[in-house]
């Protein structure tokens, strides 16, 4: 009986502490992040808004990211979108074709470990209904070579996304560590209908066969930063 009481109290304090941390993170989100990122679903779904927003929408962050990655990235932000957000505003004409105008890109602010933990908790609580259907993505293993072939030659995703340095286009987010950063259900649902998450976004909505959708999602979820370091 006493042990049960102890466990109950521990759980209560753990949940209460998490709630407090998330509340704190939400305050940081609202004060420091909301001028660039939408943390509630935007009511303006126009193309104009896509052009004027400063950062990716985060109102569905809890469906999108993995918390462990968020905590780390918020302390040491790296470039995810090589051409920034949105790409058209950060490119320039050169004699060799268009190039990224690095001078127009601003680094993402860094957070302290405590802030990163709080903000990650707050972000993970942003889970609007209706964007993903849990369980649709089966997460069945895929042969990496087959996955890469579908991503590149067969479905053309590499036109805009890179899965390794120099291995694909620059207008979409890099996917080197998609398996560390993103959730499988999100990958599946976003590929299925990108505009459902972000109206007018410059990623095509392809009519992929279910098997292709499963295969591509599994492949992306299998990509990890550690593989990059090993040169795989």
């Amino acid at each position: 009986m006493k042990i049960g009481y102890f466990y109950f109290l521990s759980l209560f304090f753990y949940l209460a502490a998490n709630r407090l941390i998330a509340d704190d993170g939400m305050q940081i989100l609202q004060a420091q992040c909301s001028s660039c990122h939408a943390i509630t679903k935007p009511t303006d779904n126009s193309l104009e808004r896509l052009w004027t927003r400063k950062g990716p929408d985060l109102y569905y962050a809890g469906l999108k990211f993995q918390k462990k990655w968020l905590v780390k990235w918020l302390q040491q932000p790296t470039i995810i979108r090589p051409a920034g957000e949105f790409y058209f505003k950060h490119i320039k004409k050169t004699p060799n074709g268009d190039e990224i105008d690095s001078s127009s890109l601003s680094p993402h602010p860094k957070l302290s470990p405590n802030e990163a933990e709080s903000v990650a908790n707050a972000l993970m609580s942003l889970k609007p209904e209706g964007l993903i259907i849990p369980g649709k993505f089966k997460n069945e293993p895929v042969n990496p070579s087959i996955g890469a072939m579908f991503f590149g030659k067969l479905r053309g995703c590499s036109a805009c996304h890179a899965t390794k340095e120099g291995g694909g286009g620059l207008s979409g987010p890099e996917l080197y560590d998609a398996g560390d950063r993103l959730q499988g259900d999100f990958i599946y649902s976003f590929i299925e209908d990108p505009q459902k998450f972000e109206p007018h976004i410059w990623m095509p909505k392809l009519e992929l066969a279910e098997a292709d959708l499963q295969r591509l999602s599994s492949y992306l979820l299998s990509l990890h930063r550690s593989q990059q370091k090993e040169g795989k």
């Binding site: 790409y87 490119i91 320039k92 004409k93 074709g97 268009d98 036109a159 805009c160 120099g166 286009g169």
Partner: peptide, 16 residues
Amino acid sequence: QCHGIERNGTGINSKF
């Protein structure tokens, strides 16, 4: 993103 600012096929993705 692919066809370029000049519309001549030299967008930032074209090199890859």
